[in-house]
């Protein structure tokens, strides 16, 4: 009995641990894409966030400051991205790739001195009373602050996008920037904000990796999670609730990878490691197959350069 509870708990922790960084990055990217901007630099921003969070935690000894540093670093890189794609009208695909390559290099350079350093990871916060409920209590109410925050973010963004005027304006900008401009909305400023929010969330996602998941810093530690998050946004049809579902489904796939060998499966570890990537491809194919539906959900101006004209 207690053994199966422990097992269940281990599985849940794996899922949550794999899902939460993706959830942050994908929710941020969803907001960015809702404004019509495609941020293919997500992977780079996560890496920069991860290294900044780790470094700040090492220096300050406070992992919460680390999370803030991760968010700030992600936002800063996103600002740079915005400078290129919004102010200098650069191609969003090319710039995103540049961001990722730059982020990989810069994070490796900044993190070189921190390889092998250890920190105190982000503590878990048991919610009083609720956490004491047998079985479910420790599964649902005994996590670190970022897990709770990510779930609150899903609710908050659902309300924001569908039930506030600012959310309506965000959708309008992504749908038709020229119309929004004609009505007098500051399209570029709104897109900057959406992009910076996305960058900050990618930074927090990165921070989760270096402060909770491992917790340590190693080069290229995101291992493609930024790209997976991008695929999740497509899978979720740009809807917050479905991003949540997608991230946790993906976390489920990761269990196979981590627990597969423990359960005595004799598949080489490399093949298990392929699973998340293959799952992403499969999910992407399934969701993209219906091109009509995809087009209806997709922000109409996604990825296109907009210059406020006369």
């Amino acid at each position: 009995m207690s053994e199966s509870v422990l097992m269940l708990q281990a599985v849940a922790l794996t899922i949550i641990g794999a899902a939460t960084p993706l959830l942050f990055a994908a929710l941020g990217e969803m907001v960015t894409e809702r404004s019509g901007v495609l941020n293919l630099g997500l992977e780079g921003m996560m890496l920069i966030g991860a290294v900044a969070a780790f470094a700040a935690t090492v220096v300050s000894g406070n992992p919460y400051l680390g999370v803030l540093a991760g968010a700030a670093a992600g936002a800063l890189v996103a600002l740079l991205h915005g400078l290129l794609v919004l102010s200098l009208l650069a191609n969003q695909v090319a710039t995103g790739l540049a961001m990722t390559l730059f982020g990989v290099g810069l994070s490796a350079l900044l993190g070189a001195g921190f390889v092998g350093t250890t920190i105190t990871p982000l503590p878990t916060l048991a919610i009083p009373l609720l956490a004491d409920v047998p079985l479910l209590g420790s599964l649902l109410f005994d996590h670190n602050a970022l897990v709770y925050l990510s779930l609150l973010l899903v609710v908050g963004l659902s309300l924001f996008i569908y039930h506030t005027r600012a959310g309506l304006i965000l959708r309008a900008v992504g749908e038709s920037p020229s119309s929004a401009h004609a009505l007098g909305y500051p399209v570029i400023r709104i897109r900057y904000l959406a992009l910076i929010f996305g960058g900050a969330m990618a930074g927090v996602g990165g921070a989760y990796l270096s402060l909770v998941s491992t917790p340590m810093w190693s080069e290229n530690m995101t291992a493609g999670r930024g790209w997976v998050a991008l695929a999740l946004v497509v899978f979720a049809s740009w809807k917050p609730g479905r991003v949540l579902a997608g991230a946790y489904m993906f976390g489920g796939v990761t269990i196979l990878q981590l627990h597969g060998q423990g359960m005595g499966v004799s598949i080489p570890s490399q093949f298990l490691s392929m699973l998340p990537y293959l799952a992403t491809v499969v999910v992407l194919v399934l969701i993209s197959r219906d091109s009509v539906k995809l087009r209806e959900n997709r922000p109409a101006s996604l990825g296109r350069v907009f210059r406020p004209s006369a």
Binding site: A172, E175, S179, Y185
Partner: peptide, 17 residues
């Protein structure tokens, strides 16, 4: 050339204007 948002409703479009 209408400054309308095709994916939004009539009401939302009017609110935006």
């Amino acid at each position: 050339h209408f400054s309308l948002f095709e994916a939004l409703t009539v009401k939302e479009n009017i609110a935006l204007g």
